[in-house]
Simulated scan of single mutants.
Amino acid sequence: MAIRDIENKPKVNILETIIPKILFLFALISILTTVGIVFILLFETLSFFREVSFIDFITDPKWTPLFIPKHFGVLPLLSGTLIVTFIASLIAIPIGLGSAIYLSEYAPDRVRAIIKPILEILAGIPTIVYGYFALTFVTPVLRFIFPDMDIFNALSAGIVVGIMIIPMISSLSEDAMLAVPNSIRAAAYGLGSTKFEVATKVIVPAALSGIVSSFVLALSRAIGETMIVTIAAGGTPKLTLNPLESIQTMTAYIVQVSLGDTPQGSIEYKTIFAVGMSLFVLTLIMNLIAQYITKKYREEYQ
């Protein structure tokens, strides 16, 4: 036995030396990939702003880089993206959080074992299927209610994007609530609280940091969604607050210009990177806000 241990010891020492280096290499690849993406976005965006004024980019209410006269105001794309995200949040946050509260605090184990996999199936559906679902089912239903609605519109796209991100909010929020110790629940019940009071006034506040993180992650996913808005929302960059009209989001514009018809190196081509950088900055700001809220309301349990 001792002889075997001596023979195996060099192999163990070799593994202990090599494995940390391999894992470090994996971590380094992730970092370098992120740095490379940011560098390319920044380099091409600066090249774009050598030809287009930054002030015009953030203040011009028109976006027509593919037509004459050319306008490079990102506001129509930004407003389209925010309208879709806002509608998605109105759908996903109440339903997702309500599902999480039910699964965490109310559902028996047998019911949870059925409902949770069904919810998670939504996360596995390809987004292009969601897009055609929005265009061929949701839009006709909405046009029955709103006859003047455009075929391509922000409302149906926002509703379906909201449906798509429900599982993300539900699953992550449920995990955050299940992490709250049962002793806190027992203490609340001991004070005479009802199940609803325990869920809404004790568990949800205790898990608030994780719940907020799920909201931000899901909304970042909604902001970056491509196929649903490309198919269902249209391709009309328009500065409007009317969700019944056709709009264009940042991601939909990137898809439009990336189809191969735009000459590489042209100002029209560089708009892809300017819009991509705007999208990157928007999601970065959201994540910084989420980190602040998470740190402020984080609860640590022994």
Rank of each mutant, 00 (worst) to 15 (best):
N182M: 14
I169W: 02
S193L: 15
L178E: 12
P205T: 03
I203T: 10
S213N: 13
F196K: 15
T226D: 00
Y189W: 11
V198T: 15
V216N: 12
I169C: 07
K201P: 06
V216E: 07
I228W: 06
P205Q: 04
T226I: 01
L172F: 06
S214R: 03
V212Y: 08
A186L: 14
L172I: 11
M227S: 12
R185P: 00
A222Q: 00
I228V: 15
K201N: 11
I223C: 06
V202K: 04
S213F: 05
G192C: 06
A179E: 10
P181D: 03
A222C: 07
G192W: 11
T200K: 10
S170V: 00
Y189E: 12
A207P: 06
I184Y: 15
N182K: 15
T200E: 00
T194R: 03
S173E: 02
E174P: 00
A206Y: 12
M177S: 02
F196G: 14
P205Y: 07
A176C: 06
A218G: 15
A218M: 13
V212M: 14
S170I: 00
E174L: 10
V229N: 03
V216R: 09
E225A: 01
L219P: 01
V216Q: 09
S209W: 09
V180E: 03
M177D: 05
I211Q: 05
A207K: 10
S173Y: 05
G190M: 08
S213G: 15
A188T: 05
S209H: 08
T226R: 03
D175W: 03
S209D: 10
K201G: 11
S170L: 08
V202T: 09
V229G: 01
P205M: 02
R185G: 09
I228Y: 04
S173C: 03
T200A: 11
V198N: 12
L172Y: 00
T230F: 14
E197K: 15
S171E: 12
L191S: 15
A222L: 06
A179R: 11
A188G: 03
V212W: 09
V204S: 01
P181Y: 02
D175R: 11
R185D: 08
G210L: 09
A218K: 13
Y189Q: 08
V216C: 12
A186W: 12
I228R: 06
S213K: 08
I223R: 04
L217W: 08
F215T: 04
L208G: 10
G224R: 02
A176F: 05
A207Y: 05
I228H: 06
A206V: 10
K195G: 10
A179K: 13
S183M: 11
V212S: 13
A186S: 14
G192P: 05
V204P: 00
